[in-house]
Structure formats: structure tokens, C-alpha cells
């Protein structure tokens, strides 16, 4: 007896106000503007991607080469440590048969690979620090935002302002005190140190953003769950969280991007063990001169993880970044 009445979605193309010449024109105009903007903002990215695949002479060629023979020299320089071969040993080295693919390429440039670089380790540090601090910020943020949204927290207004005020001064101002403090606390050059710091910075943002999202979820839903036999925490998990998912995803991406890109603190507070990618990429100095293609390759590798996450969450983001103004 399954009588299913599926309601057909509205086809907006047939809406009367969307077929007129005027509408068509403004639409074309809007698209043109967007395309132009996208092109302009993609030029640096394009530059970087091409530079990463250019050989050493190509990358500094003037005028810049748009067509060139791609090479992975840059990536190899990024991932390895090398020494310059003395001219006498060059021929002999090139004759060796036990050279692998990468070694052969570098030999052409008169370099011998001595071992892996630290780039991999630093990228891994970035992943650890950024993901841990982001998860922590969102987790604590969503709990705090829920409490601020639903309960009569004493001094709520003041607390919320206080949380916001941590964002009011430029972070650089506090780098010196934090540096000294971290040395005392033995947090200098540790993952934990950076994770805590980024969490503190992101938390205020996460609380405010998530509070906005949670405020919009009517409390009747949780109350229904309470009456249905669930505890407050269970109601929160089963009823509130699924509805806040857009907000959580948006907050997650924002926090992740901040932690991932952070440069100043990472430079000040780490040296060897916990150094993340941003402060290390510009220091990829080659043997004799700046290795532009290695730097470009490093930046490219650095971009990929954020792009993947943002892309995976894009459906949520579209609604998330409009702060709930755009509904389904």
C-alpha cells in the first residue's frame, strides 16, 4: 500500500522572474565578474605550480616562460640534502650504475644526494599541530558555545566579551612574553606548546561562530529528546550536533587554515623538533643561491592537505560561511 508522494523540487529556471532579458544580462555580468576575479586570484597559484616544475634556469628566466619542459628537480631538491660534486669526480660519479632515478637527475646538475631533507618531518609537524589544535578548538568550542547558548551561565555577557577580547590585540605583540613563558614551562619547541597556543587563539573564534549556529537551532528539539528519555548530554549528541554540522564544518576549516598557515609563533617558538612547514619553506636554500623551484614545490605540497579538507567539506562550507543566512 506504499503510496509515496514525492514532491517535485521547484525548477528555478522556470521561474517567471528568471527568464527576462534583464535577468539574463545581469546574470551574464555576474558570471563575468566572478570569472575575472577567480582568474586574478588564481594567477599566483598558477605561477607557483609552474615554478615548482621548472628547472633552475627556467625559473629565473626573463621574460618568464609559460612553455617549458617540466622537471621534478624542484621536488627532489626539496626532499633531499645534497653536496656539490667536485668537477674531477663528476664523470666517475655519473658512470656509476647503482644510481637511482633522483640521484641521476641531480647528478646532471653536479650534485650528489646525501640524505633526506627535513621537509617531510616538518610537514608532518604541521599536520600534527594543526589537526590536534583544530580538533581541540572545535571540541571545546562547541561545548562552550552550547553552554552559552542554552544555560544561564553567570556573567555570560562579560565572559563572551572576554573570550572575544583575546582576539583584540595582534598576536605578534605577545610573542616575546610567550617565548619567555614557554622556555620556563619547557613548552619551547614542543608540539604541545604550539597546539595549546593555536587552540587558545582559535577557541574564541570557534565559540563565537558556533554559538551563532547553535542559537539558531530551536531548543524544542533537545527538549523533545529530554522528554523522550534522553539525558542532556545524549540529547546534545544525538539531536543538536547533527543539526550543527554545517557550523562545525565551517569552524573546523577556519581553525584549520589559521593553525596551518601560522608563521610568526611557529618561527619564534620552535627550532628543530617541532618546527612546522611555514617557517621552514622559505629557508630551503640550495647550494649556491635560492632554490625557487624547491620553494614553490614546498608551498605546493603545503597547500595540498588544506585543499583536500576544504574540498571534502565544501557542501557544508557553502552554507557555513554565509553564517546560516543561506538555507537549502
Amino acid at each position: 500500500m506504499a503510496v509515496s508522494t514525492t514532491s517535485a523540487p521547484i525548477t528555478y529556471a522556470t521561474r517567471v522572474d528568471k527568464v527576462g532579458a534583464r535577468y539574463q544580462f545581469t546574470r551574464a555580468l555576474r558570471i563575468a565578474v566572478v570569472v575575472l576575479y577567480a582568474t586574478i586570484s588564481l594567477i599566483p597559484v598558477f605561477w607557483m605550480v609552474t615554478a615548482a616544475f621548472k628547472s633552475r634556469p627556467d625559473v629565473v628566466a626573463i621574460p618568464p616562460k609559460v612553455f617549458f619542459t617540466p622537471t621534478i628537480e624542484g621536488f627532489i631538491s626539496l626532499l633531499t640534502k645534497r653536496v656539490l660534486l667536485p668537477p674531477g669526480m663528476m664523470e666517475e660519479y655519473k658512470q656509476r650504475t647503482d644510481l637511482n632515478f633522483a640521484e641521476r637527475i641531480m647528478a646532471e646538475r653536479g650534485q650528489r644526494i646525501t640524505g633526506p631533507s627535513q621537509y617531510g618531518q616538518r610537514l608532518l609537524n604541521s599536520v600534527i599541530v594543526a589537526s590536534a589544535s583544530t580538533v581541540l578548538s572545535v571540541l571545546l568550542g562547541v561545548l562552550a558555545a552550547y553552554a552559552f547558548s542554552r544555560f544561564n551561565v553567570p556573567g555570560k555577557g562579560d565572559l563572551l566579551f572576554f573570550i572575544l577580547s583575546t582576539r583584540m590585540l595582534p598576536p605578534v605583540v605577545v610573542t616575546i612574553p610567550i617565548f619567555l613563558m614557554y622556555q620556563q614551562l619547557r613548552l619551547y619547541d614542543t608540539h604541545l606548546g604550539l597546539i595549546l597556543l593555536y587552540t587558545v587563539f582559535n577557541l574564541s573564534f570557534a565559540v563565537w561562530l558556533l554559538k551563532g549556529f547553535i542559537d539558531e537551532i530551536p531548543r524544542e528539539y533537545e527538549e523533545a529528546a529530554l522528554v523522550d528519555g534522553y539525558s542532556r548530554l545524549q540529547a546534545f549528541r544525538k539531536v543538536v550536533l547533527p543539526q550543527a554540522i554545517t557550523g562545525i564544518a565551517a569552524t573546523f576549516v577556519f581553525c584549520l587554515i589559521f593553525a596551518w598557515n601560522e608563521y610568526a609563533f611557529a618561527l619564534m617558538l620552535t627550532s628543530e623538533r617541532a618546527r612546522t612547514a611555514p617557517p621552514s619553506i622559505p629557508t630551503v636554500l640550495g647550494t649556491g643561491g635560492i632554490e625557487w623551484s624547491a620553494i614553490a614545490a614546498g608551498t605546493l605540497g603545503f597547500l595540498v592537505p588544506v585543499i583536500i579538507v576544504t574540498f571534502a567539506l565544501r557542501d557544508y562550507l557553502l552554507r557555513g560561511v554565509t553564517f546560516g543566512a543561506l538555507r537549502k
Partner: peptide, 13 residues
């Protein structure tokens, strides 16, 4: 509320 064992049909939502 859970232990009171009532069923609530809300006005909205």
C-alpha cells in the same frame, strides 16, 4: 524530564 515519562507534542518544531 526523562524520568517523568511524559510524551510532549510541541507547538512548533
Amino acid at each position: 524530564p526523562a524520568e517523568r515519562d511524559t510524551a510532549f507534542v510541541f507547538q512548533y518544531y
